[in-house]
Amino acid sequence: MDWIAVADVVAAVLMLCGAFLVLAAGVGVARFPDLLGRMHAATKPQVLGLVLLLTGVGLRVHAWDVAGMLFLVAVFQLLTAPVAAHMVGRAGYRTGKVDTSLLALDELTPDQEAAERAAQDEADGETEQADADPR
């Protein structure tokens, strides 16, 4: 058994695991009840799933130039996925797309309402207070 065969077996296992995670993410997007739950499924298992798939591909192709590019894909995925998730969640929350009645606990809505009241009070006094609004 040579090293190429070992690398191929490891690559196959990694790719199968990655494919499973991406499949689960797809099922979660279809199945979870609200926007935020779907966003979890859409952004999260996919991160590890993609990293596993890329590692598998890297082990299979035996080429350093390809490995470098796969590494870049993984790095930029890790850098951008949290920002994308945050923007979707925040935009959904602020435009009322999140059904807060489905939440078991919601500590953001009261704080936002309090901040809006404070901002309103400030506006009455004609003073701009940027920090009253949670952002």
């Binding site: 979890h40 998730a85 925040r90």
Partner: peptide, 14 residues
């Protein structure tokens, strides 16, 4: 925040 958002099951909404 970034590390929290990368871990499945938790997302920073604000």
């Amino acid at each position: 925040s970034v590390l929290t958002s990368l871990v499945p099951g938790t997302v920073i909404v604000e």
